[in-house]
Amino acid sequence: MARSPSTPPALLAAIVLFAAITPAVLMTAPALAAQLASQWQLSPGQIGDLFSAELGAMSLATLPAIWWLKRVNWRLAALLAGTLFVTGNLASAWAEGYTTLVILRFLTALAGGSLMILCLSSAATTDNPSRVYGLWVMGQLVLGAIGLALLPKLFASQGLASGYLLLAALGLLVLPLARAFPSGAQSPAQARSEDYGAPPLRVGLGILGLLGFYIALSGVWTFIGAMGESAGLDAQANGNVLAIATLMGILGAVIAAVIGERLPRVPSLWLGFGLMALSTLLLLGQPQLARFAIAALVFKFTWTYVLPFILASLADLDPSGRLMNLSNLVIGGGLALGPALAGRLIERQGGFDGLLLAAAVITLLSLLAVLGSRERGRAVASFDSH
């Protein structure tokens, strides 16, 4: 994929803003889940199924994108997907039955997943993908934190519909930026004749590295609150730690964006993966408040710090945009597999230590896979090739 000599501000804004609003429902899931339970009297199973439908649709958007990424003008695709996203949220605000809401959220998330694919693929064409992916992560975290702070008050006065109407309004405001996306990665003739630029083994290692990373992080993060409770921390202390962890996550993404391609990428990968594994091990053995807090803060910081460098490493393998499209499916798969595997490990072991040890091992194996996906020359001095 040919990279732009410089990233136009409008393209950067499109990538960051579209990528922030499309997963907003999942980033604010605790607030939405509470409102669905109180206003609609939905059971935990129904709420879980609703969010699973959204996450599944965002991941499944990868499958049609395999066809349209190399055949459809990306600006037109963004306009159509953005319009469907706005329309779906408007319709969700007026949905009256659970089944209707599930269908509408599935279609809306399918449009959101298509927009996310365009953001991931467009970021790979920029001159500094590490920086752009850092801002990509930061936008999602910032909007998620704002949403978690504001939505409970909004729901209390206006009800559930106000959340979906707000998302529709945000989508409408951002929609004009659809024209800032590239027209496409390459011509249809090139897309038909070219395969991935990197050998299949390196591509496979890169994908496995991303999958393992998401399995480890989602498995640990899903149950980190329960780990605090098991160690005897009260709900207030637990909540305070996790709230501060969100700010640390934003900081990690900001630092990754600032570093970008200024420094060799390999040390950043080692640092991020290494600290993530270390923070996972710090949670072993029912830690007291200080150790739990340090582990949670470091874990969230390193997760958002290292992710942009993982995605930038995948972008190096990808001349066509198809690998970044596939990464959307891999991310969704990892997010789904992590909690499922972690729950079974917890039940089998009767505690969290087995999960934590497994997550630390998977984290380090993911590091080796990502490093193995890189060209030998890039592994020595990644900035030489940018």
Rank of each mutant, 00 (worst) to 15 (best):
G113I: 13
A111L: 11
Y98A: 03
A95Q: 08
A81Y: 00
T83Y: 03
L80E: 02
M116D: 12
L76H: 15
A78Y: 00
F85L: 04
L101E: 04
T83M: 12
A78T: 00
L76G: 12
G82A: 04
L101C: 10
I103Y: 12
A91G: 11
A77G: 06
A95N: 05
A78I: 00
F106C: 11
A78S: 03
T100N: 09
Y98N: 03
S92V: 13
W94V: 11
T100R: 06
L79G: 02
F85W: 03
A91K: 03
S114F: 08
A77Q: 02
T83Q: 05
T99Q: 12
T83V: 08
A95K: 07
L79D: 01
M116K: 09
A78W: 00
L80G: 02
L115W: 10
A81C: 06
A109G: 13
N89W: 09
L90T: 07
L110Q: 07
G113C: 14
A93H: 02
N89M: 07
F106N: 11
A93D: 06
V86I: 10
G113E: 13
A78M: 01
R105G: 05
G88C: 10
F85H: 01
A109L: 09
G82L: 01
L84K: 01
F106Q: 09
G112Q: 07
N89Q: 14
L84G: 09
L101R: 05
V102W: 06
A95E: 05
T99L: 12
A111N: 10
T99Y: 09
G88Y: 02
S92T: 13
A111K: 03
T108L: 13
R105Q: 10
A77H: 01
L90N: 04
F106P: 07
L76N: 10
G88D: 05
F106T: 10
A81N: 01
R105K: 14
F85K: 01
R75D: 02
T83R: 08
S114K: 07
S114T: 14
G112D: 04
G112P: 06
L80W: 04
A111H: 08
G82E: 00
F85Y: 10
T83N: 09
A91L: 13
G97M: 15
E96S: 14
F106G: 11
T100H: 08
T99G: 13
A81L: 02
A78H: 00
Y98V: 04
R75I: 03
T100I: 15
A78K: 00
E96H: 11
T99A: 09
G113P: 10
G97K: 13
A93Q: 04
L79Q: 08
G112H: 05
R105F: 11
L107H: 14
V86E: 05
G88L: 03
V86G: 05
T87D: 10
A81R: 00
A93F: 09
F85G: 00
A111F: 03
G88A: 15
W94I: 13
L80A: 15
G97I: 05
G97S: 15
L101Y: 06
V102K: 05
T108N: 15
G113H: 08
F106E: 08
